[in-house]
Amino acid sequence: MSDALQLILEDTDGTQLETSCTRFAVIWQGQEIWFQQVGNNQLMIGVEVEEGAAEYANLLLRPLATNLVSLEVEMEAADVGDDDDHVHGPDCNHD
């Protein structure tokens, strides 16, 4: 199984460009929304958070119809003191 994501980029005139990558981001509502394949046919979607940021982003996924979903970015205040007890481990997805 390949870690590469197959992308199709389309212009407003319908011209398509096919490419591949291991990870890509969309800048949406001022936030970098990252997409990455993580194995077992799963797609990880995350938001970059800068060190010392006053807010963090939640991604909200809501079903709209059988084959449609809505993805929203919701900003919340960061609780600086809450992360003091966090221990970085192999499963926390922090660098």
Rank of each mutant, 00 (worst) to 15 (best):
Ser2Met: 09
Ser2Pro: 06
Ala4Gly: 08
Leu7His: 07
Glu10Phe: 02
Asp11Met: 05
Asp11Tyr: 07
Thr12Leu: 13
Asp13Glu: 12
Asp13Met: 10
Thr15Gln: 05
Leu17Glu: 07
Glu18Thr: 15
Cys21Ser: 06
Thr22Ser: 09
Thr22Val: 06
Arg23Tyr: 10
Arg23Gly: 11
Phe24Tyr: 13
Ala25Leu: 09
Val26Trp: 10
Ile27Pro: 00
Ile27Phe: 07
Ile27Leu: 09
Trp28Tyr: 13
Trp28Arg: 07
Gln29Ser: 10
Gln29Met: 11
Trp34Phe: 11
Gln36Leu: 09
Gln37Asp: 11
Val38Cys: 12
Gly39Cys: 03
Asn40Met: 13
Gln42Met: 12
Gln42His: 10
Gln42Thr: 10
Met44Phe: 02
Ile45Thr: 05
Val47Asn: 00
Val47Trp: 00
Glu48Ser: 06
Glu48Thr: 04
Val49Thr: 03
Glu51Leu: 11
Gly52Cys: 03
Gly52Arg: 01
Ala54Ser: 14
Ala54Gln: 13
Glu55Tyr: 14
Tyr56Cys: 02
Tyr56His: 07
Leu60Val: 15
Leu60Arg: 15
Arg62Leu: 13
Leu64Trp: 03
Leu64His: 00
Leu64Ala: 07
Ala65Leu: 02
Ala65Gln: 06
Ala65Ile: 02
Ala65Gly: 03
Ala65Glu: 07
Thr66Asp: 15
Asn67Ala: 10
Leu68Ser: 07
Leu68Gly: 05
Ser70Val: 08
Ser70Asp: 04
Leu71Arg: 03
Leu71Thr: 04
Val73Asp: 00
Glu74Leu: 14
Ala77Asp: 13
Ala78Leu: 05
Ala78Trp: 05
Ala78Tyr: 01
Asp79Glu: 14
Val80Tyr: 08
Asp82Asn: 11
Asp82Lys: 12
Asp84Arg: 02
Asp84Cys: 01
Asp85Thr: 04
His86Ala: 07
Val87Asn: 00
Val87Pro: 00
Pro90Gln: 11
His94Cys: 05
Asp95Met: 11
Asp95Ile: 10
